[in-house]
Design a binder for these strands. Sequence first.
DNA 1: CTGAAAGCGCTTACAG
DNA 2: CTGAAAGCGCTTACAG
Lengths: 341, 341
Amino acid sequence: MNRKRNTTLKELAKELGLSISTVSRALNDHPDISTETKESVKILAAQMHYVPNMFAKGFRSQKTNIIGVIVSNITHLFTSTILKSILEEAEIRGYRVIISESNNNEAKQSEMLTTMSQFGVDGVLMSLARKTTYVDDALRILNRMPLVLFDKVSSKIPCTQIVINEEEAAFNAVEHLIGLGKKRIAIMKETENSYNSEKRYAGYLRALNQYGLPVDEKIILSTEDISLVQGKRLANILLSMKNRPDAIFAITDNAAIGAIKALNKFKIKIPEEIAVVGFSNSINSTIISPTLTTVDQPGDKIGRTAVKYLIEEIENPKNDLLTKTVEIKTNLVVRDSSFKA
Amino acid sequence: MNRKRNTTLKELAKELGLSISTVSRALNDHPDISTETKESVKILAAQMHYVPNMFAKGFRSQKTNIIGVIVSNITHLFTSTILKSILEEAEIRGYRVIISESNNNEAKQSEMLTTMSQFGVDGVLMSLARKTTYVDDALRILNRMPLVLFDKVSSKIPCTQIVINEEEAAFNAVEHLIGLGKKRIAIMKETENSYNSEKRYAGYLRALNQYGLPVDEKIILSTEDISLVQGKRLANILLSMKNRPDAIFAITDNAAIGAIKALNKFKIKIPEEIAVVGFSNSINSTIISPTLTTVDQPGDKIGRTAVKYLIEEIENPKNDLLTKTVEIKTNLVVRDSSFKA
DNA sequence: CTGAAAGCGCTTACAG
DNA sequence: CTGAAAGCGCTTACAG
């Protein structure tokens, strides 16, 4: 079949008996052009369904109005919520978005950065792949365009970073458990020292210290992949102890839900015998029984803030490299898994 | 700060004392160029971190290798699963992806189509906004580039459409309930006649007919927004009947889960008194208690298939407009909400 | 085997 | 108020 080509400035110009320059200016509301000319040009443009070719435009002006976004896994609700707000906020500000997934693969992530650069995006938003150690590509990108990190960040990359108040959020969660009278609070965290896991662990320790509770290594559990299955497994370990904990703080909802499933199986009363608190406020936290107390991370706000800072840097390139860290406040959502009946 | 610009062919050419043409050809492995020249060009290109400017390239060749994707809501797991596979499959085939959300807003959807066209994407993948009636913009796009619809489709748009076997899937689900000995099966569906809801309803009716069960309008419930809350509400209506159903087929997992929550509240035994089957195999279906029997929609396969057909049409534009409908098979996942103990 | 030149669709400094 | 011309970075038919 024969595809129609898009209408071009040239065709409009020919049709109107004007020059391409004039048509271009008329469409862009240049003050030099007379109102009547503008009028007639716009009418014909609408009639012929003229849409400017953004490639030509961006190519010419060295500005594409495209933002590149790199995340590890788009199917995580937290991630897709952030993406949704990025799409919305970017669109409001006149930018389009190209999304890539690294799948937590560092090599892939580097490759995506290169691709972004090929496409001449005006800036990049990125949440780092787990265990990212090689940051040279990110640094090279940073030399060419603004880069803003969010959620999974790294101090090795001197750029604006948008995070939640991880430490404080964890502190609040544990403090809440202490407020319920819990004295032996286990934690389920990640083995490797991801930014997020480390901060949450720090908040846990601070809460115990501040309220004079002993820190017991035996109930500080770590796992590589902090998933539902691992939550179950770790909960079973806790249940097998003579000196069981009376509360569990899991640094992800999935692990917390796995723990609840394990506790339910053994008919442990939640929260009376063991209270459980998660982190993320995923949908599942309202589906599980009992419903899960958890930290709500405002993905929406994270996305919008990241876009705001990135576009600010794109449009005001005068600023020097700034390593600003922006903390977004979270909220503890108390539900049945920790509610003192 | 001073951003570095990307290295260009011109710079490479100057450095090497070659013409731009030769450098371009060397990089593209043109047969005319000598091995040594290619070698030296490629070495310098790597050293100087040369990345081709895709804008210039696409602009010149009238091919961007970008696919536009329009979905209604990226945060639905089913949608993000499809998107994930679209990203993967497109990348394998050398395409990048621009994603837009319509938020089920028809005007927004039209706008997105125009934007896609502005960016000169090579083709568009789209899942229609609910209640889409105005298809002129889609038809215009179709005149300019290949368009493939998936999931939410419309017979008004003559293009390749990727769907699941909605009718058969619903038939199988209801047949399964009948196999358990259920004789009075309620359905929760959508008020408006979306493609998906209609097909599932048709499957429901066919199963009842085929097994000689009466169709009772009173237990055929419709709602505009087939959500968890609505599922609860409709379940309460069913429970208030003198002649209660012994099974519920909800055309979405959310509604099914809402129903289960309502039944749990009234201590109705699931599946003995009332069995429940949903549709989607969302994560929640394994979190709810009892776990939910549901139709697994292979989002992954839908995405890959859509990309495959679209790129096929992009790269072989000779084919005439073809209204092919591709059906992806689904699977009934039987869990506790319908398992005869 | 290599180069000069045109051109993709647009914007914009320059000239009138 | 309008137009001719250059140029963004690349590819490719044409010439040698």
